[in-house]
Design a protein around this nucleic acid. Structure first.
Lengths: 346, 346
DNA sequence: ATTAGCACTCGACTAATTTGAGTGCTAATA
DNA sequence: TATTAGCACTCAAATTAGTCGAGTGCTAAT
């Protein structure tokens, strides 16, 4: 059987309708819209065909049709009219996103928040993984008699408290060595040998107690390794409760639990490494729990290299058109902003 | 009518039962437990009395009784047997809490998480407000041609990106001035006059462009002011969905929205400034939305001064005994840990 | 090829009914 | 006098039966 233009239009009308109503769509409803000028009987025949071809599903004999995963897929690939953001929406977004440029990770969080606000679905956003981040400065600040704060400045700032016997003066000296040896490098440039060398310098020439130094460097190394770990933020998880597909409270709880475990999310977001905006519909998603949901992802990049992901999670009948447009807009804005934060653009 | 011992025991038995079952408790259920050796008829009479006295409520004629807010209040004040944490639970908690001492705020977050894990209710925890925090160090690190990272180290580390035309050398100099003028002080010690003085020094003797300097100091001042703002974290919000009192998904959504707005939480947590562990039951809570929930709060302190709050939010029939014990334990641990992080204890 | 017409299906809704946990009261009992 | 067994009564919740209507598939007419 052939998927002619009329069938396509009917399929599109059904999906458009289902996206807003969340109820099985009947032939009469489509016919009444009168865009096609066809009677319900004709539509009915076409719908039967579309069902046979796998694009539609009938929940039970006397109900209307709902789109199958295949139907959605075809819709997203070929039918959906790309929604265009209004110019004032774009400008507003730019303003909102730029108003609070304080640190890369804050900006990323804000972008996730805005994507959630724009789409009213749940968003997941990952911060850049550190490999591409050059260390600008390191510091050791004594904050009590037996503890120092270790600080690494890249495009963002990470810190951790280390319990150690270093004196304030020793902190200054060691910090200087650390900067000499490590500043300008990225996390992956730094091997354990480098750390070892630092140890030799400090314990040798500078006469710092080896035991103290080893302990300290252990944490320093750990912190640097952790630079690679991107963070993941979830925004607007509560929107889940808004959609009838998650009316079953146990289902909602399952999803909440899933979203709460960052490992799940990292895996999820890592699975999609393609260019551009991609949708994973229903069973196309690996995790069983998302088989009734859709995931739309986009990369944002830095120096042309993809470094982070922004994802929207919602019901399968999500408003793909709007979600695509929102993600497109926001990822572009982030790209611009990251460049702006990290280099001298604008 | 007098609330004699037998009535008290019956009330206690009813509430204990209702806490686990969430179903109206009938006379037979109490009688069958046989701890009192009374027939259901006798219990029935006593229950009628307790209802008349306002401790119990009968949802409808042919149902058992549930505790009223007054009933819970009496239970919490006088009836509840204080649950004692097992020694190994305590030790485990200490281990878990200490294993990741990196920064004060991380530790606080972790405490909130552990309280949630221990009680399986939602927790809200606020970080110390900054007034008591001494500035250890300030720094300006250039991270691109037109942006520097401004860093303040107290017991924790805060940073923000500032767009400015300062050169690397100028950064070093200004940072030095900032440290001379501000290190060792607390946020409230620093007035706008101090900032003004810094401006004079930098622009005068050091010859830095006033426009650049004013812009920079504006953000510096803002950042220092923000030191006072405690953060608020919510953990385990999803547990809401677990309890039958929130089965109504719209109610659950309302609570989620409430929990999402940090202003609500700040207000909520600010309202309870008493010593020790306090419960607010049902309508004792200000926000209308919590009228079917209970809130248990505890302060944690630093140098004997209350600086932050830990709160548990759950259904009115929460396991008060266990929640009280958990909060008691955790707040004590935090007290110890904060001392440890900030000063030289242990 | 399209559509009007019609019998048929089946979930959703409503009303009627049954069930049973729990009560309050009364009379018997210790 | 306090307690309890016994029983009639109540009422929400669960079950069953019955109705409604949106929607289908098929057939015959256009």
């Amino acid at each position: 059987m052939e998927l002619n233009d009329r069938k396509k239009m009917i399929l599109q009308a059904i999906i458009d309708e289902y996206i807003v109503s969340a109820e099985p769509v009947g032939s009469r409803a489509i016919s009444k819209k009168n865009e096609l000028g066809l009677s319900s009987a004709t539509i009915r025949n076409e719908m039967a065909d579309l069902e046979e071809m796998g694009f539609l599903i009938q929940p039970h004999t006397s109900a209307g049709r709902i789109p199958s995963d295949v139907g959605y897929r075809f819709y997203v690939n070929s039918l959906m009219h790309r929604y265009k953001m209004g110019i004032e929406a774009i400008e507003q977004l730019e303003r909102e996103l730029r108003s609070k440029i304080t640190r890369l990770d804050k900006t990323i969080m804000r972008a996730g928040y805005l994507a959630a606000a724009l789409t009213d679905y749940t968003t997941v956003i990952s911060t850049p993984v550190g490999e591409s981040m050059e260390i600008n400065k390191l510091d050791l600040v004594p904050i009590s008699d037996d503890a120092v704060m270790f600080i690494i400045v890249t495009r963002t700032v990470k810190s951790r408290m280390i319990k150690t016997q270093l004196t304030a003066d020793e902190c200054t000296i060691v910090a200087q060595v650390l900067n000499n040896m490590l500043a300008g490098k990225t996390a992956e440039d730094i091997s354990y040998d480098t750390i070892h060398e630092i140890e030799k310098i400090c314990c040798g020439k500078l006469g710092i107690e080896p035991k103290v130094m080893i302990n300290l460097l252990h944490f320093v190394y750990e912190s640097i390794s952790e630079l690679d770990d991107g963070e993941i933020y979830v925004e607007n998880a509560k929107s889940i409760l808004k959609y009838p597909e998650y009316r079953d409270i146990d289902k909602a709880r399952e999803i909440f639990s899933f979203l709460e475990d960052k490992n799940n999310l990292k895996k999820l977001v890592a699975q999609t490494d393609n260019e551009g905006i991609k949708a994973k519909i229903g069973t196309e998603n690996e995790p069983e729990i998302l088989k009734d949901s859709s995931l739309v992802t986009v990369n944002y990049s830095l120096d042309g290299k993809a470094v982070g992901k922004l994802a929207v999670i919602g019901p399968k009948r999500m408003n793909y058109s709007q979600v695509f447009a929102s993600l497109d807009l926001i990822s572009n804005e982030i790209d611009k902003l990251i460049g702006y934060i990290s280099k001298d653009e604008e």
